[in-house]
Design a protein around this nucleic acid. Structure first.
Length: 125
RNA sequence: AAAGUAGGUCGCCUUAUCGCUGUACUUAUUGAUUAAGUAAAGAGGAAAGUCCGGACACCAUAGUGCACUAUAGCGGGUAACGCCCGUCCAUCGCGAGAUGAGGACCAGUGCAACAGAAAGAAUGUACAGAUCAUGCUGUAGUGAAACCAGGUAAACUCUAUAGGGUGCAACGUCAUGUAUACCAGCGCAAAAGAGCGGCACGCUCAAUGCUGGAGGGUAGACGGUUAGACGCUGGUAGUAAUACCAGUGCUAGAUAAAUGAUAAGGAACCUUUUGGUUACAGAAUCCGGCUUAUGACCUGCUUUUUUU
């Protein structure tokens, strides 16, 4: 099972991110919210961005830590959304909780969130 | 031993698995390149606040005067400083020590609690003296200070010294490529105008038109971008800050932003045990300081008490 998470899979373009916030579809599995949108420019893999609000976590150390946890849990569970049939999406994960989580919590929630996403997309198709 | 005081050191560690970032090498591949593998690296003492000082870049090789701002014993260090070292003085403390808006009221202007008639545009009261006479002279009384006098510049001011502006989102190159705002030359001419932190100089540009070139903004890539006023050890000079010499060591460079997760073991602390906790905190052009946040440990010295 591939569990890499390289540079290519990171969402960088400012335009794409703006589009996500204006036109993206949100799914929430507290304390994580996923916003996603189909790609405007097609490429061979899903791109992902991660964000933690400055409002809830003032210190950069805490924000960095949570972002790393989110990235790590996505890396481990991305097999759920990886298949040839799904079209390519842009993902944006937001942490909306107010306390610092630990890895096990984040991983469990991430699994549920991704499964939710899959069932929703399959129903649409 | 307790209380205090000054300074220094370190900033949890090891292994395994799965990942991230750039670098080097190998293999495959391509128009560019990309992919895989291997190797050795990969947050701090404050990376923070952005408060001072520089380097570097552009604006004129950053100019002149005024204004404005900062600094202020004396001597030294430094690329530079508002930093550091030494020293004198003042204040605080029993002391080790700490603190420092410590230049100048013989330039001018202002201010001054209580007391006092009065703290300077004032001349009082009592007594004595002088005089034609007095508001003249002396003494007494208040006060730190009472007319040939002082205090005060964390009051204006004066003196000395320093300071041009904007900041790596600076700035340079490339690809893409549209109006004409861009550039070069010609022409127009002196006025008005625009730009250069405030004002005055000064400097630069200068409508419209013609000819030629070429590309702004936005988004992107690359450079700038990390080896440096660098650390450690020894020697020499110096009370010291520091300088010089010799040896030796070090390569983080991300860009919606890498340095992480899990497991096991150890260390320290807490808890009866299970177990829990491990501070402050995350590079963003780079250095020198200052300030603030914070967990331990070590050393010198002082005072008090006890013992020998």
């Amino acid at each position: 099972m591939e569990a890499r998470f390289g540079k290519k899979e990171k969402l960088k373009s400012k335009k794409e991110i703006d589009l996500l916030f204006t036109a993206g579809t949100p799914i929430t599995q507290y304390p994580i919210r996923l916003i996603y949108h189909t790609k405007t420019i097609p490429s061979h893999c899903t791109t992902v961005a991660v964000s933690v609000g400055k409002r809830n976590f003032k210190k950069a150390v805490q924000r960095n830590h949570i972002k790393r946890l989110l990235r790590e849990s996505y890396r481990k569970n991305k097999y759920i959304v990886q298949s040839d049939t799904t079209p390519n999406f842009n993902f944006m994960f937001l942490y909306i909780g107010k306390e610092i989580p630990d890895q096990s919590l984040i991983t469990a929630k991430m699994k549920k969130l991704l499964q939710k996403f899959m069932s929703k997309e399959c129903a649409a198709n």
